[in-house]
């Protein structure tokens, strides 16, 4: 449908007043994880799917498609993955137009697209080490993550959801990838990192970090962070805290995956046997 841009009378960038109204979140336990709800296998058409919700409003829906024959064999370098005879993992990260608290960004806007692309690249790098791509030569796996609501720690939730979706699709994997986000509160003396920050905390943060861990292998598959400078020790502390968070999240994801498997299993075994 054609969009009438001329009708938009307001300034290009604007924010509702609610954004500036501070929500009185008091000090919290920096090590506390927000309750995570995960469910695998809820979409019927995609080979695999998963939904992850963090209490406080982050909602991510993920679908995994494939493996299918890659359109262009050999992959080339354009798609990033591939090479070495293995399959290609293609990731997409989309934010729903209404996902953020601020004004609705114009979908397909340049800044929006850049941010999505960076997140998609981060997602791919977080998942690639977990997936046994060598087992899928000439094939293509697609993962798409849709952020329905951004309540902070969105990329981390997307990593967890995407690895669940891939596992749900029956793709061979070395391990699940568990994502976890942290941020450093500017109010605290330097070095105070908060686990799984909310959207408001994230906005105020002096530094942010997103991690992904393959818990069984104890390998870090994604590190992406930046912000006000800190000592390696401070970042190291964040890393430790975040990895601990990943380890704590892992059982939840594993449970939800097993539950999905059990549900399918029940559907396969005839009743009464």
């Amino acid at each position: 449908m054609p969009l009438d841009h001329r009708r938009l009378q307001g300034p290009d960038e604007s924010q509702p007043p609610a954004l500036w109204a501070g929500e009185g979140s008091g000090p919290r336990d920096p090590c506390a994880l927000r309750p995570l709800f995960a469910r695998a296998g809820l979409l019927s058409q995609a080979e695999g799917s998963a939904y992850v919700e963090l209490s406080g409003g982050t909602k991510v829906l993920c679908a995994a498609w494939g493996p299918r024959e890659a359109a262009e064999p050999g992959g080339g370098t354009a798609g990033g993955g591939g090479g070495g005879g293995g399959g290609r993992l293609v990731c997409e990260f989309r934010r729903a137009p209404f996902s953020s608290r601020g004004a609705r960004p114009r979908p397909g806007g340049a800044a929006e697209r850049e941010a999505e692309r960076e997140a998609a690249a981060a997602l791919r790098e977080a998942l690639e080490p977990a997936v046994r791509l060598a087992r899928y030569p000439r094939a293509r796996l697609a993962v798409s993550a849709l952020l329905l609501q951004d309540g902070g720690s969105a990329l981390a939730a997307a990593v967890s959801a995407a690895s669940l979706a891939l596992a749900d699709a029956g793709v061979e994997m070395y391990d699940l990838a568990v994502g976890c986000a942290l941020c450093r509160d500017p109010g605290h003396p330097s070095g105070a990192w908060l686990l799984q920050p909310g959207e408001a905390e994230e906005r105020r943060a002096a530094a942010r970090l997103t991690l992904a861990l393959l818990p069984a292998l104890n390998q870090v598959s994604a590190v992406l962070g930046g912000g006000r400078g800190g000592d390696p020790e401070s970042w190291g502390e964040a890393l430790r805290l975040g990895l601990d968070g990943c380890h704590r999240l892992y059982p939840v994801l594993r449970q939800s995956l097993l539950r999905a498997v059990k549900r399918r299993d029940a559907a396969h075994t005839p009743p009464g046997s």
Binding site: A130, V220, L224, G229, D231, S234, G236, L239
Partner: peptide, 21 residues
């Protein structure tokens, strides 16, 4: 001054936590 302002893993492999430190 030796302060770290950004960290990012690139490439398709993974890293051990110890080696990151």
């Amino acid at each position: 001054k030796g302060a770290l302002t950004c960290m990012k893993k690139i490439g398709k492999g993974s890293l051990d936590p110890e080696s990151i430190f």
